[in-house]
C-alpha cells in the first residue's frame, strides 16, 4: 500500500503499452504513406493516359473538335502571355508591400490592420477574386476578356503569397547588415535597395516562382471573368482575348468522349511538367543562393 510504484503492475502492463505504441506508429506511418500513394497513382494514371498524345503536333495545333487534330498551342502560349502580366505586376506590388511592412511601417493600428487584411485575403476563395475581376476589370474598366483583365485578377489572387514570402526573406536579413550600411552614411532607401533587397532576393524569387505556379494552375477566376475555352488564334496584344492550359484541360475533361479525356491527361502532363520545372528552379534557388545569417 505504501509503495509509490507497484513494479508488478507496471511490468504486467508494459508489453501491451509497447505493442500499442508500435501499432499506432504503424498506423501513423500508413497514413503518411497514403498521401504519397495517391500522388503516385495520380502521376501514373496521367502519364499512361496522356503520354500517347504528346508529340510535336500537340504543341503546334489549336483546339479542334476532332481529338486527333487537337493541340494546346493557344493554351500554352496563352499561359505564357498570362505570366507576362502576372509576374511584373504581382512582384512589384508584393515586394513593395513587403518592404513597406518590414522596413518603413510604424507599429500602429493601421499597420496591423494591413497585416490582418493580407492574411484574410489569402483565405478568400479564388472564385471570389473572379467576381471582383468581372466587376472591376472586365466591366467597370472595360478591359473585356483580355490578357490584361485576367492578368490583373490573377495578380491580386497571388499577391498575399508573394507578400508573405518577401516579408520572411526581408526579415531574415540581419540587423547588423543594415546598421553597417547606415554607418557608411547610406540613406534608408539606399540601404533597402543595395543591402537588404540583394540579400533577400533568393527568398523573394522562390516565393515569386511559387506564386506564379499557383497562377498557372488556377482555373476558377478565369472561368468567372469569361475567358473562352475554345480559341483557335493567338493574342497579339495584352488587350486580346486568349485561353490558358487549365481552361483547355477543363474543356476537354467536361466532354464525355474518352479521346478528349486522354487529351485532358496529355494537357495535364504538360502543365505538371511546367510546374515541376518551375518548382525545381525555386528549390534550386533556395538551396544554392539563400544565405543563412
Amino acid at each position: 500500500m505504501s509503495k509509490l510504484v507497484d513494479k508488478e503492475i507496471v511490468a504486467k502492463k508494459m508489453p501491451s503499452r509497447i505493442i500499442r505504441n508500435q501499432i499506432f506508429k504503424g498506423l501513423f506511418f500508413l497514413s503518411t504513406l497514403f498521401g504519397l500513394l495517391v500522388l503516385g497513382v495520380l502521376f501514373y494514371r496521367i502519364i499512361t493516359q496522356g503520354i500517347g498524345y504528346i508529340d510535336l503536333d500537340f504543341f503546334q495545333n489549336f483546339a479542334s473538335r476532332r481529338p486527333e487534330n487537337a493541340g494546346i498551342k493557344a493554351a500554352f502560349i496563352g499561359t505564357i502571355w498570362l505570366m507576362v502580366v502576372v509576374a511584373p505586376v504581382s512582384l512589384i506590388l508584393g515586394v513593395g508591400t513587403a518592404i513597406y511592412l518590414e522596413e518603413y511601417a510604424k507599429k500602429n493600428k493601421f499597420t496591423s490592420f494591413i497585416k490582418l487584411n493580407i492574411s484574410n485575403l489569402a483565405g478568400v476563395p479564388s472564385i471570389v477574386f473572379g467576381l471582383l475581376g468581372l466587376t472591376i476589370f472586365v466591366r467597370a474598366m472595360a478591359l473585356e476578356r483580355s490578357v490584361l483583365a485576367a492578368g490583373l485578377t490573377m495578380s491580386l489572387l497571388v499577391l498575399p503569397v508573394i507578400i508573405v514570402a518577401s516579408q520572411e526573406a526581408i526579415r531574415s536579413v540581419p540587423k547588423e547588415l543594415r546598421e553597417a550600411s547606415f554607418a557608411m552614411g547610406a540613406t534608408k532607401w539606399q540601404t533597402v535597395l543595395k543591402v537588404v533587397l540583394p540579400a533577400s532576393i533568393p527568398g523573394i524569387l522562390t516565393g515569386g516562382i511559387l506564386a506564379l505556379s499557383r497562377a498557372i494552375g488556377e482555373t476558377a477566376p478565369l472561368i468567372v471573368i469569361g475567358i473562352p475555352m475554345f480559341v483557335a488564334f493567338l493574342p497579339k496584344t495584352i488587350m486580346d482575348t486568349f485561353t490558358v492550359l487549365p481552361m483547355q484541360i477543363y474543356n476537354w475533361t467536361s466532354r464525355p468522349q474518352a479521346e478528349f479525356q486522354d487529351l485532358a491527361a496529355a494537357g495535364i502532363l504538360v502543365m505538371l511538367v511546367l510546374l515541376i520545372v518551375m518548382n525545381s528552379i525555386a528549390v534550386f534557388i533556395r538551396n544554392h543562393f539563400q544565405k543563412r545569417y
Binding site: G35, L36, V38, L39, V41, L42, R45, I46, Q49, L210, S213, R214, I216, G217, E218, T219, A220, P246, I249, Y250, T253, Q261, A264, A265, I268, M271, L272, L275, N279
Partner: peptide, 20 residues
C-alpha cells in the same frame, strides 16, 4: 512530397476524381 501534393492544380484533382 506533401508540398508537391499541395501544389497540384485543382483541375488536375477534378480530372482524377471524375476519371479515376
Amino acid at each position: 512530397i506533401l508540398e508537391v501534393l499541395a501544389g497540384i492544380p485543382t483541375i488536375v484533382y477534378g480530372f482524377f476524381a471524375l476519371t479515376f
